[in-house]
Design a binder for these strands. Structure first.
Length: 303
DNA sequence: CGTTCAACCTGGGCGC
DNA sequence: TGCGCCCAGGTTGAAC
C-alpha cells in the first residue's frame, strides 16, 4: 500500500518520537506468522530499550528511526518497510492480532508516556536494526534513487533515458526514483499525458520534463492530502484518519469509468504482473500527433 | 538487458 | 453456506 505520500504521512504522525526514551519494546506473537525482523527480536529489544530516539526520517517508502544507544555508542537505525499493508498507529490498532511491534515511550516533563505500534495485516513488511553501514547498504544510492518529491528530469534521463522498459514499469524502479508505487505511477503518467507502455528511450526531453514535474507535483499534493485511502481497510494516518488524495485519482482503480479529460473509458492493462490504469485517448506516446487506437498490435510493420 | 513467474502473507469480494 | 478463484498500495530472486 504505502507509497511516498503515505509513508511521509506516517513519518509526520510519529514525529513526536524524537527526543523520547524507549521504555519498552515488544514484538508480539499474534495468531499470524511473524514478519521479517533482523536481527532476532530479542537482540533488537536488548539494543533499543533504554535508548533515546534522535530522529524520524523517511527514505523512499521506508521509515528510518535514528536511535542513540543507551551506552552512548554509535547510533543505530530502525528501518521499517511497510510494504503492502504495514502502518504505524498511535491509537487502537484495527486488529490486535496483527500488531508487529510495540514501542513504549517513557514519560518526560511535558509529555506523558505513550505507545506507538507497527501494524501489518498481510505481514509482508520488514523491520531491521542496522548501523550506519547497514543503512547505507539498505537505503544507499545503489538501492534508492533521488526522492520523488525533488526528482528532476535530468535525474530520470540519466537513469532511464536509454532504457527499453515501458515507462510505467521504469517509474516503479526505486533505484531510478524513490517513492513511486502503483497508484502514483498511474496518476503521474495520466497528468503528464504519457502512454504507460511507451519505451523510455522513445521519450523526448519535453516528455521527461512533464513526467518529472508531475511526479513532484502529484506526490506533494498527495502528501498535503495525507495520502490515498482505498477501500477502508489498510492505510490510514497514525491517528486513524483516512487520507484524502483518493478523491483526486483520475485513473487508478477507475476501469471502465469516464476519463475526466475526454469522457472515454479508463482502461486496465497488466504490466510486469501489476495493474496499470490509463486513458488511451489522453495518454499518448509523445511525438505522436493523434490519439492512439486502443491496442491492435497489427498495423505496426508498415511505417 | 528485459520480461515473466513465483514467493512472501492475509483477507475481501465475486461467481457458482 | 461454502468453495474456489481473483484481486490488493511492495519487493526479491530465479529462470528464460
Amino acid at each position: 500500500m504505502p507509497e511516498l505520500p503515505e509513508v511521509e504521512t506516517m513519518r509526520r504522525g510519529i514525529g513526536f518520537l524524537v527526543g523520547r526514551r524507549i521504555a519498552r519494546a515488544e514484538f508480539p506473537r499474534g495468531s499470524v506468522r511473524p514478519i521479517l525482523v533482523e536481527p532476532r527480536p530479542a537482540t533488537v529489544i536488548r539494543k533499543i530499550v533504554g535508548a533515546t530516539i534522535e530522529r524520524v526520517d523517511r527514505r523512499g517508502k521506508r521509515i528510518l528511526i535514528g536511535i542513540a544507544t543507551a551506552a552512548g555508542g554509535p547510533r543505530c537505525w530502525l528501518v521499517v518497510e511497510p510494504r503492502m499493508t504495514g502502518r504505524f498507529v498511535t491509537t487502537a490498532p484495527p486488529t490486535p492480532g496483527h500488531v508487529r511491534l510495540v514501542l513504549g515511550l517513557a514519560a518526560r516533563p511535558g509529555a506523558a508516556a505513550a505507545t506507538v505500534m507497527f501494524w501489518d495485516l498481510r505481514g509482508l513488511g520488514t523491520i531491521r536494526l542496522v548501523d550506519d553501514c547497514g543503512l547505507e547498504r539498505l537505503c544507499g544510492p545503489e538501492k534508492l534513487g533521488p526522492d520523488g518529491l525533488t526528482v528532476t528530469a535530468a535525474d530520470l534521463v540519466a537513469c532511464l533515458g536509454g532504457s527499453r522498459r515501458a515507462v510505467k514499469v521504469a517509474l516503479l524502479d526505486q533505484r531510478a526514483v524513490a517513492g513511486i508505487g502503483n497508484i502514483y505511477a498511474a496518476e503521474i503518467l495520466f497528468r503528464a499525458g504519457i502512454d504507460p507502455r511507451s519505451p523510455c528511450r522513445r521519450l523526448g526531453a519535453a516528455a521527461w520534463d512533464r513526467i518529472a514535474a508531475e511526479t513532484r507535483r502529484v506526490l506533494a499534493a498527495a502528501v498535503r492530502c495525507e495520502g490515498s485511502s482505498i477501500g477502508d481497510e489498510t492505510y490510514k494516518t497514525a491517528d486513524d484518519r483516512p487520507g484524502r488524495f483518493q478523491r483526486q485519482h483520475r485513473v487508478y482503480g477507475r476501469t471502465g469509468e469516464a476519463c475526466t479529460g475526454c469522457g472515454g473509458a479508463v482502461q486496465r492493462i497488466v504490466q510486469a504482473q501489476r495493474s496499470t490504469f490509463f486513458c488511451p485517448h489522453c495518454q499518448r506516446h509523445p511525438g505522436c500527433g493523434r490519439p492512439r487506437r486502443p491496442q491492435l498490435p497489427a498495423t505496426r510493420r508498415m511505417a
